[in-house]
Amino acid sequence: SEEELIEKAEKLRKEFEFIWNGIRFIIRENADEIRRFEELLKE
């Protein structure tokens, strides 16, 4: 039914948001290391 689809979509959206926030947190935490690594690659 349509309601089930909406519920599934909402659940997926929440899971995606949770994963995305996790990725963003990891990137933020490691931003300095990532930048340093990029500098090494440029040399």
Rank of each mutant, 00 (worst) to 15 (best):
I26F: 12
E43L: 12
R24M: 13
E29W: 14
R24D: 12
D32T: 04
S1T: 08
F37G: 01
R35A: 08
E4I: 11
E7W: 07
N21A: 12
E33R: 09
E10Q: 06
K42L: 09
E33C: 15
D32W: 09
N30A: 14
E10C: 14
I6F: 11
K11M: 13
F18G: 01
I23W: 02
I34P: 01
E3N: 05
R36V: 04
E7V: 08
E3Q: 10
E4K: 06
E2A: 11
F18W: 14
A31Q: 04
I23P: 00
L41T: 02
F18V: 07
E29R: 06
D32S: 10
E15I: 15
I26W: 12
R28Q: 10
E2W: 14
E43K: 07
E10Y: 04
I27G: 03
N30G: 13
R13V: 10
G22E: 10
N30H: 11
I27W: 04
F18C: 15
K8P: 08
I6M: 09
F37E: 02
E33N: 13
E15Y: 14
E2I: 13
K8V: 09
L12G: 03
E39R: 02
F25C: 11
E29I: 14
I34A: 02
R36W: 12
I6T: 10
S1Y: 07
F25S: 02
L5Q: 05
E15L: 15
G22H: 12
I27Q: 01
K14I: 11
E33T: 13
E7S: 11
W20P: 00
E38Y: 14
E4T: 08
I23Y: 00
R28D: 12
L5M: 06
I19N: 00
W20Y: 03
D32M: 04
N21D: 07
N30M: 15
R13N: 06
F16K: 01
I27K: 00
E3T: 06
E15S: 06
R35F: 11
I34Y: 05
R28G: 12
E39V: 04
R13Y: 12
E38F: 15
L41E: 02
K8T: 10
E3R: 07
E33M: 15
F16I: 03
I6A: 08
N30V: 15
I34V: 05
I6L: 11
F37R: 01
G22P: 00
L41N: 01
A9H: 08
R35Q: 05
W20V: 05
R24E: 13
I27E: 01
F25W: 11
E17Q: 06
R36M: 09
E15C: 15
E17A: 05
E4F: 11
E15Q: 08
E10N: 05
E38A: 13
E10S: 03
K11A: 09
E10F: 02
S1L: 06
K11Q: 12
N30T: 10
G22Q: 12
K42G: 09
E17S: 04
S1E: 06
E43W: 13
E29L: 14
L41P: 01
S1N: 10
E29N: 07
E2H: 08
E15H: 14
F16Y: 06
F16S: 00
K8H: 07
E33D: 05
R36A: 07
I34D: 01
I23F: 03
K14S: 08
E10R: 01
F25I: 03
I6C: 15
F37A: 02
W20S: 00
G22V: 15
F25Q: 10
E17F: 03
E29Q: 12
K42E: 04
W20F: 03
A31P: 02
R28N: 08
F16N: 00
R36H: 04
L40A: 01
